[in-house]
Amino acid sequence: MAKVSKSPWVLHYDGASCNGCDIEVLACLTPMYDAERFGVINTGDPKHADIFLVTGGINEQCKDVVKQLYEQMPNPKVVVAVGICACTGGVFKETYNILGGVDTVIPVDVYVPGCAARPESIIDGIVKGIAVLDQKREAMKQGKLPELNVEDISEDGKEQASANEAQNAEAETTANAGEESK
């Protein structure tokens, strides 16, 4: 883990979850787990947020909301998918309304497994997210847009990434540092 230099503010949004992971996200902020000791503050405003915590899979109706929230967040930003639903669609994968995990609509940097994800692992995911955030910030300082940490990703990940970069002039989307804690 890289040195943690800034206090990240998190934005939490419930995709199509069962609520289990959401209450665990909230539990992280309360006295027992107290993510605030890492300087983590839960904000309701995407413009204030550095880390986007998404729980639950993506369905037709919440797809656009998730995209909009992601776009409104200022750079650099990190997405943490909380719970197995957010990672892959989980138990609801086979239903007609779930498109899949969060990475079907926005790029995800950290995957937190578990059903429900435990507060300890959510905090671990946030801390990993802070490291990714620092890398992205560093890259931005040097005038580079967030770049891929090439060593950490697999071959098809690279292809995927270059394809995305070509599509996306802002190139802000793919900084998948492969921080899969799975």
Binding site: A16, N59, C62, F92, E94, T95, Y96, N97
Partner: peptide, 9 residues
């Protein structure tokens, strides 16, 4: 927004 279609499972 959270409809999953769970009954169909």
């Amino acid at each position: 927004f959270v409809h999953r279609g769970l009954e169909s499972l």
